[in-house]
């Protein structure tokens, strides 16, 4: 906790967990999608399911998806803005199992037909934890510069990624790799102290067996 956390975030009310955290989750979904959204289905769990309308969790999720940050007053009109942009949105109450009470699963489809999904929890004070991404169990906060790399598991791939980052002077704060099974699809989540420049993203994407490189600035 530092001085900017204790007096902050600057945010659209009424709840740091149900509104500001939800906006961050929506924004992350939009960044991972990487293109204008066409449709989004939100599955709300626990306290999110119980109180999402009164807390504007729905408006915050959609506002985030549209790229608004926690302090953007357009969050209030996000449902109308999404409708005007032809984006179809649904909210569904569900039980996501043994997860934090403020958890949502987002399934988002882009204009090109690309789909992504994530499960994230709003853990208090506007902070979030992403617990599932593109079908993989993950664990990251979005507070760092985050590099998300879906790839096919093979020897040497992690070394290739980390040496490229090292060459650029990018320090890895945390890194986690999750895979379905040996030699199968996997995902790498790298939390770094520095931002990842465009040329580096291109270099990473050129490594064989890397499916995609998604960079997220601190939310």
């Amino acid at each position: 906790m530092n001085i900017l956390d204790i007096l902050g975030p600057v945010m659209i009310g009424p709840s740091s967990s149900h509104t500001a955290g939800a906006a961050r989750i929506g924004r992350l979904a939009g960044i991972v999608l990487g293109e204008p959204p066409a449709a989004a289905d939100f599955y709300l769990h626990g306290s999110f399911a119980e109180t999402y309308q009164g807390h504007g969790t729905d408006r915050a999720l959609v506002g985030g998806l549209l790229g608004f940050d926690t302090a953007d007053e357009r969050i209030r009109q996000s449902l109308e803005l999404a409708a005007a942009a032809g984006i179809s949105i649904s909210f569904n109450r569900t039980d996501l199992g043994d997860v934090h009470p403020n958890t949502v699963k987002a399934m988002v489809k882009g204009k090109s037909g690309k789909t992504i999904d994530l499960v994230a929890s709003s853990i208090g004070g506007g902070n979030i934890r992403v617990v599932e991404l593109l079908g993989f169990p993950v664990d990251f906060s979005g507070q760092f510069h985050t590099i998300i790399i879906p790839h096919r598991d093979r020897p040497g791939l992690i070394a290739a990624v980390s040496s490229l980052l090292a060459e650029r002077g990018i320090n890895i704060a945390q890194m986690k790799v999750t895979r379905e099974q040996r030699g199968a699809e996997a995902i790498m989540i790298i939390e770094a102290d520095q931002s990842c420049p465009t040329e580096l993203v291109e270099q990473l994407a050129a490594i064989p067996d890397i499916r995609d490189v998604i960079t997220v600035r601190p939310l």
Binding site: G8, I12, A20, A71
Partner: peptide, 21 residues
């Protein structure tokens, strides 16, 4: 009330208590 109406506030330290400071 601005907080409850989805206006912009500073959580101080939380959104629920943002009016006091």
């Amino acid at each position: 009330e601005v907080n409850a109406a989805m206006g912009r506030i500073v959580a101080a330290p939380t959104a629920g208590s943002c009016g006091i400071l």
